[in-house]
Design a protein around this nucleic acid. Sequence first.
DNA 1: GAAGCGTGGAA
DNA 2: TTTCCAAGCTT
Length: 293
Amino acid sequence: MPETDLADAAIEWFDANARDLPWRAPGTSAWAVLVSEIMLQQTPVARVLPSYQAWLARWPEPAALAADTPAEAIRMWGRLGYPRRAMRLHECAVAIVARHGGDVPTDLDALLALPGVGAYTARAVAAFAYGQRQPVVDTNVRRFVARASRGKADAGPTTTPADLADTEALLPIEPGRAARASAAFMELGAVVCTARAPRCTDCPVVEVCGWRAEGRPTPTGPTRRPQQYAGTDRQVRGLLLAVLREADGPVQAGQLDLVWADAVQRDRALRSLLDDGLVSPAGDGRYALAGEA
DNA sequence: GAAGCGTGGAA
DNA sequence: TTTCCAAGCTT
């Protein structure tokens, strides 16, 4: 049964080679796991580490964050990127207090119902915080499974139901071991079975790898155009929010005018921040982070 | 299903 | 210097 071989080899390798990341320490709370997972969405581990420590030092449990303002969450988020994650994490804390008595829920559907928690994050919390047998599928796991199990060069477009089923089929039956396999698959995808230059000589499953068996074919599909950033509304949003984040309270609109010359684009970006709930009008021509005015 | 959403370090 | 992209989610 090669599927079992894959998980067993991955777990054995993980036990000996896993990076010593703080959210993997024994006794890490479910809240800490949730915070780490949200921060790690599209954000490198190295940049998350200091923010993670600071966040949990200030808000060690959901109730503490829920009692603070969204503005403070957005400010504490700093330059991690995608600041709506900070707002959603605050909303998460409020929902956890309101719906679950302040404890991060263990039920998958309850996790999925939390703001900013999707198919990946919900299962990551269920598996890593609560030891459940859930397929945890992020970009690393998709790539690893596509190569090792299916012999493909890359994972192709996301097909969540199929991705979940394919990965679930690889998991050991025992829940704790399944959770460990999920962590191992992620780690392998992140540090060995990488997108650009996979380190097959260091891979513990190379003997049963379908991609290797196929002669490591190169990707065939059209490469996705890289996202542009310079000059986009996205950049302007970032500039506007940086001003508000670094201010102690509401700022004059004139202050915001300084960060971008094009008034049309600037106003559009500000309006989108207001629509997203990241920014609030102070009512006197000033603007502030949400909940601060 | 595609597009929008930040940031900064490595290639 | 420019390009690429890193543990996704929402609409």
